[in-house]
Amino acid sequence: MSLAPLLDASLAIRIHAFSALAALALGAVQLAAPKGTLPHRAVGWSWAALMLTVALSSFWIHEMRWIGPFGPIHLLSLFVLWALPMALWHAHRHEAALHAKGMTGLFYGGLVLAGLFTLWPGRIMNQVVFGG
């Protein structure tokens, strides 16, 4: 395991990856912690900011191109940019079940599942975890 491939990557990739890793760690804490508390709200806003950073930074990453400069990661990013405000809106309206469903979906789909795809051979995170 070596961070060298990630540290040698473009700034957009570094921002994207380190924000995603931070969101993964913070999200795991958030899922395990008590809900509806002041710390839950504070950590939640931090997590939402990280997810926004992950989604937006992806638009400067063009490693996998399908249509012009865009690839499958950009579809996921568009979904996050829609789903994140929706989940926050549900929290604002005290619709706890919808808020929980949205945030849990973003965590598992937008971070865990997407993160597994970064381990695909030839990808930078594959080189970080398994070596080049």
Rank of each mutant, 00 (worst) to 15 (best):
P34G: 08
R123A: 07
A17D: 04
A17E: 03
A28E: 10
L21D: 08
A91T: 09
N126C: 01
S2M: 03
A100D: 14
L106T: 05
L38G: 10
A49C: 00
A83K: 07
L76C: 03
W89D: 12
H99L: 03
G131H: 04
M64A: 14
F18L: 12
F70V: 07
A97C: 01
G36H: 05
V80N: 02
A22C: 13
P5S: 10
S58M: 07
A33Y: 00
F130E: 02
P34T: 13
L113R: 05
L88Y: 04
F79Y: 11
A4V: 14
G68D: 05
P69S: 07
L6T: 08
L98V: 05
L38A: 15
A23K: 09
L76P: 05
L119E: 12
G27Y: 03
H62I: 05
T53W: 10
F117A: 12
F70A: 01
G109F: 02
L21Y: 11
A12I: 00
L116Y: 09
L88F: 04
L52N: 14
A4Q: 08
L26G: 12
A96K: 15
T37C: 14
E95F: 04
A49G: 03
V43W: 12
P85D: 08
T53E: 03
H74P: 01
A100P: 06
A114K: 06
H99S: 09
H16K: 08
V128I: 03
A20R: 10
W89P: 09
T37W: 05
I15T: 02
R41W: 13
L7H: 09
H99F: 01
G36P: 00
L98D: 10
L81T: 04
G71P: 07
P72T: 01
A20G: 02
M64E: 09
V129Q: 02
W60I: 00
W89M: 13
G102C: 01
R123G: 04
F79L: 10
V80E: 08
A97Q: 14
F59S: 07
A12P: 00
E95A: 07
S2D: 12
W89N: 09
F107K: 14
F107P: 04
G71Q: 01
P34M: 09
W47Y: 13
F79P: 00
D8S: 15
G109N: 01
L24M: 15
H16F: 04
S46T: 00
H62W: 14
M64C: 00
H90K: 14
A48Y: 00
A4I: 11
V129K: 02
A114C: 11
H92W: 09
R123K: 04
L76K: 01
H16S: 05
G131E: 06
S46C: 13
L111W: 10
T37K: 07
A42T: 12
A17H: 03
L76T: 01
F70W: 14
V112Q: 13
G132F: 13
A49N: 10
P72V: 02
E63L: 15
I13F: 15
V129G: 00
L21A: 14
P72Y: 07
L113M: 15
G132S: 15
V128D: 03
P34W: 03
